[in-house]
Design a protein around this nucleic acid. Structure first.
Ligand SMILES: [Mn+2]
Ligand SMILES: [Mn+2]
Ligand SMILES: [Zn+2]
Ligand SMILES: [Zn+2]
Lengths: 143, 143
DNA sequence: TTAAAGATTTGTTATCATTACAATTTTCGG
DNA sequence: CCGAAAATTGTAATGATAACAAATCTTTAA
């Protein structure tokens, strides 16, 4: 589960000019260790037991800071909830409408706007929506 | 501006099993005549003068109904606001971070999930974010 | 060491889009 | 025309996020 040391996390924060507070390390580490594209609330819920004084505001502030420093990216795959991803390289996402899980799709090349539009994309989101294999399997069982 | 007759709008609604009330015709016509990917609130603001009794709830209800009947599509390009589009064919969108306008990009072929994932996408959203030509021009003037 | 300044965290309150709900109005078959 | 069903409306509730100011922690310089 721990695919990155606390040392590395602290180094990354310092490298981006972010002072590595206990809370920031916790949030950033959580994202490093759980590639589940969590919402701010999920992060808060999961960290609360280990950091009883943690405030939800701090989670929001930290996420905003990490995004501003390009240490994480926002995944806007569904309205009404922002999700966060330590992987800042371009990759697509698939959201299952049954289990709501978000699956990474790495084998799609980064897209550009058509030449003739003259538009330059600073960032791109490619989102697919459907039913994942697991949930499809369960549905077929029942019928 | 009026690129579609009221007759045609009514026919489309009936064809989808939606009774063509005054309000539904107004909302659907607005989307047909204004390809600006408006939010529910924008639609409400723009129709209010002509339909003084129109309720925002009706706008939301109507949009939800039109989406359910596949007469329009949701464009989830930014968190916290849903946008609506009469064009239900696949096409990408570019949102300018300066003027906030959303530009249609038609010349991109519909994408599929990579074969090996076995995933079937029921819908796809491809969103680009950057600065549009107009806003880029204005910025260069100043500098 | 110490105290002020600055940075960070926290709890509470505000905001804003959307939904839930119940009452009112409109439509339509008999 | 009458009453059921459908549609609309206004208001209240929800839920994610932001604003804000007070409290706490950290750093700096005397
Ligand atoms: Mn991802
Ligand atoms: Mn469009
Ligand atoms: Zn699933
Ligand atoms: Zn622009």
């Amino acid at each position: 589960m721990a695919d990155i040391t606390k040392q590395k996390v602290v180094e990354q924060l310092k490298g981006a000019g972010v002072s590595p507070s206990e809370q920031r390390i916790a949030v950033f580490s959580f994202l490093h260790q759980n590639h589940i594209h969590p919402t701010a609330d999920t992060i808060y819920q999961r960290l609360s037991p280990d950091y009883p004084t943690l405030s939800k505001t701090t989670v929001y502030n930290t996420l905003k800071l990490l995004v501003a420093k390009c240490l994480i990216q926002v995944v806007a795959i569904e309205d009404g909830e922002l999700r966060f991803d330590v992987n800042t390289d371009f990759h697509a996402h698939f959201k299952c409408r049954e289990c709501l899980e978000i699956i990474d799709l790495f084998d799609i090349p980064e897209l550009q706007c058509p030449m003739e539009t003259q538009l330059i994309a600073e960032s791109t989101q490619l989102n697919f929506y459907g039913i994942c294999d697991q949930c499809k399997g369960k549905q077929e069982e029942q019928s």
